[in-house]
Design a protein around this nucleic acid. Sequence first.
DNA 1: CCCGTGACGCCAC
DNA 2: AGTGGCGCCACGG
Length: 107
Amino acid sequence: MMDKPRTKSANEFSIAVINCLSDIPAGKVIAYGQLAAMAGYPRQARRVAKVLKELPKDTQLAWHRVLRSDGRIAFPIESGHYQLQRSLLTEEGVIFNNNRVIKRHFF
DNA sequence: CCCGTGACGCCAC
DNA sequence: AGTGGCGCCACGG
């Protein structure tokens, strides 16, 4: 049977976020909160994080373009996730300065 | 209902 | 510039 969504907005939120994220071009990045606001849900950065966390491993979505508002990658620096995200960004030409993406890369 | 948790964010120090 | 504290939201125990 179909699982009944607890609230229909939970699903709508993910859709909105994913749509907006798919509009971010390679070489650009966006903050969790910025993405939430763009999707029409200001102050809901943590929900964006949860959506990304629940993406399938084989997703086509450019999850790596989402950073903290200070330009740093959200994962702990020693983690494999961090290394992966950083290399994906580097491959797109994103420049890091002391583990931080410079402002002009922001969408 | 209260409390802890989280791929967050802002503002004081 | 780095750190800490708190606010913000949704969830689960």
